[in-house]
Design a protein around this nucleic acid. Sequence first.
DNA 1: CCTTCTCTCCACCTTTTGGATGATCCGCCC
DNA 2: GGGCGGATCATCCAAAAGGTGGAGAGAAGG
Lengths: 206, 206
Amino acid sequence: MIRVVIADDHPVVRAGVRALLDAEPDIEVVGEAATPDAAVALAAERAPELVLMDLQFGDRAAGADATRRVRALAAPPYVLVLTNYDTDGDILGAVEAGASGYLLKDAPPHELLAGVRAAAAGQSALAPAIAGRLLARLREPRVTLSVREIEVLRLVARGASNADVAQRLHITDATVKSHLAHVFSKLGVTSRTAAVSKARGLGILR
Amino acid sequence: MIRVVIADDHPVVRAGVRALLDAEPDIEVVGEAATPDAAVALAAERAPELVLMDLQFGDRAAGADATRRVRALAAPPYVLVLTNYDTDGDILGAVEAGASGYLLKDAPPHELLAGVRAAAAGQSALAPAIAGRLLARLREPRVTLSVREIEVLRLVARGASNADVAQRLHITDATVKSHLAHVFSKLGVTSRTAAVSKARGLGILR
DNA sequence: CCTTCTCTCCACCTTTTGGATGATCCGCCC
DNA sequence: GGGCGGATCATCCAAAAGGTGGAGAGAAGG
């Protein structure tokens, strides 16, 4: 019997997953959590084999953090991430946090069940679409922006001009341009708007 | 007995809504649809009192269109929109398409049930958070971009220069600038990046 | 200790973008 | 038919953004 805890802030989704899992003779849902904190507490208390974790709690990507904390427990259950959207940043964050697998909510039920059984057995369960993305990511040279560069880019993404950014960060606009030039170079683009677009796609900006 | 059709591309969500509704003695789920087309067909065939419609099918906001088609049927069932995100554009589109109500998937079950019963009775069912947004929107002067303007803005959002846009749309860059000038004016901004940012916030761009 | 990075900062010059203004054409509505 | 808004283009000018190059400070590592 696979004991499962469901962590998702959407009651509808919890009910759906529970309905799907309860119909299986070898799977038992032993708890539901609506918040990351509750998820960690439940995982510690009920000691399930598996936690089905949503990545988006509220508007935050707090699921990755919760995954990390669950995996840090004394007898860590496996964590299977279940989410509806699939930006590269989310995936990477979840895997780094110790998730055993990554499924999309629009996956057919049999795929969900297969993922649960695989994860509970200690195997990896990646949705095919996700696996492809991860591989693509590995092939690409890792793009790392410095803290300052991200700071600048975030302001730019909100529509700030170089002068705005300079003022807000207490630097000259020449420096802002310099940071942006580096960002452009790293991202392989030639304009601020393109940089923002690409950074979004890479999960650097939300 | 309230007869309901569920339209959502996520099997998990369908199972969840069905589980919640099936537990009620006065509600009967008479069909599930995974695509907009299937939703319209089912609505015509089963003649439910109510269609619970997701807005996001795949990556498109095809739910609004499906809502419109359902409301155009001979004996139109009420449509209750059930979605997880709440950008202003989506809300407005759904209401304009003839939706009786708008609920969020993170709403507690009793709110969902209340919404279903209200909508089936012909009343309006708006989640409080949504109602507030709509009011805020009404206070603001209506921002409407023309098809062409959105087309231009979408390319700009991907990092295209004026020349790129001009080439892709087979117009001169003077025209591109003209369109963008109008967009800036309508959105109350002075730069392309700010326009993209604001348009995203308003739900004009995804 | 010295090299080598990275991050931060800045100045000069060129290209792109935005602002202002005006004009033509077309489809739609009263 | 006249008015209106959308789409198209043009020109001129000012401002913002991008390209290039360099310099200092501190961390990493031989």
